[in-house]
């Protein structure tokens, strides 16, 4: 089974530390990266695909440094960058052909794969259209399609669901779940539910470090007993928002507000403990300096 190992990997941009001595091993399965803006997710993904070179440390694919593997490593990769670029005057089909060429997809297989992916992504009706005429969601789907052209063993997706409508997101989630059975998929997202629904392993990043990792149940254990629900007046709710991370807030009848509060201690006598979810964990970990 393919293994990708981060061995004390760091990336510095002048004085800023984007990724700080990461150690982690990826194997087959779906890995979800969560974290605030600037947590180092994109930098980590760029290093995984070999676009960025770590300032220190190594990334090893089956015990071999990825830089030394060069094209042989890149052959295994499928990548969707956050800022997905395209040549606006290319048609969808030509763009796929171009990338199939760069990904060294055997010519006798390329057309078949292109057709299959275009249809899988629901882009058949625009296959001959120029990319500049497509909607944002279609362009994102094209991005996902190109990442699968070479049937990659390692699939790296940086915010793949950004710009997709709910139906497209569900279709994407189902597809990733099916693909994740026999390959390694690393994806980042701001949409916590995307990660919650499909990731086998969740990695929470903060300030360039992985602060929590594990499957959903194990990571949620770290926040057990720290999520509370309370029904308060509007004034009290405002006060709570100043002092605690609030993962949800609902208006109720009679001017009352139902709050979901993240706190290591019981915030009020009336609040009751509730089962945590990934959003609670995310808030707990990212607001941790408050506690």
């Amino acid at each position: 089974m393919l293994e990708l190992k981060l061995d004390r990997v760091s990336k510095h941009y002048k004085k800023k530390i984007a990724v700080d001595r990461l150690e982690y091993t990826f194997q087959n399965g779906i890995y979800g990266l969560l974290g605030e803006n600037g947590a180092g997710k994109t930098t980590l993904l760029r290093m995984l695909v070999g676009v960025l070179k770590p300032t220190s440390g190594e990334i090893l694919c089956d015990q071999q440094e990825i830089g030394k593997l060069g094209g042989e490593y890149r052959r295994k990769l499928g990548y969707l960058p956050k800022e997905f670029g395209y040549y606006p005057n290319f048609t969808v089909h030509r763009y796929m052909e171009y990338l199939a060429e760069l990904k060294a997809v055997p010519p006798e297989m390329a057309e078949d794969r292109i057709q299959r992916l275009i249809s899988q992504m629901g882009l058949e009706h625009v296959a001959k259209d120029k990319i500049k005429t497509l909607s944002g969601g279609m362009i994102r789907r094209l991005g996902i399609a190109q990442s699968l052209l070479n049937d990659p063993e390692i699939l790296v997706l940086d915010e793949p669901t950004a710009g997709l409508d709910p139906r497209e997101r569900i279709r994407f989630q189902n597809m990733i779940t099916a693909l994740g059975r026999n390959r390694m998929i690393v994806l980042s997202s701001h949409i916590v539910s995307d990660i919650e629904d499909i990731a086998d392993e969740i990695l929470l990043m903060k300030a360039g470090k992985i602060i929590t990792s594990g499957n959903l149940d194990s990571v949620l254990k770290t926040v057990e007993g720290k999520v509370w629900e309370a029904i308060e007046t509007e004034e009290a709710a405002e006060a709570f928002q100043q002092n605690y991370p609030i993962s949800s807030l609902k208006n109720m009848e009679g001017g009352k507000v139902c709050l979901r509060i993240i706190s290591p201690q019981k915030p009020t006598e009336q609040s009751k403990e509730v089962t945590p979810n990934l959003e609670d964990l995310y808030l707990y970990q990212t607001f941790r300096t408050h506690f």
Binding site: R46, V49, G50, V51, G71, R74, R75, L77, Y79, P81, E83, F84, G85, L99, E101, L102, K103, A104, Q146, N150
Partner: peptide, 8 residues
């Protein structure tokens, strides 16, 4: 970024 991640 995308082109650099390809085989070629």
């Amino acid at each position: 970024e995308l082109e650099q991640s390809c085989y070629l």
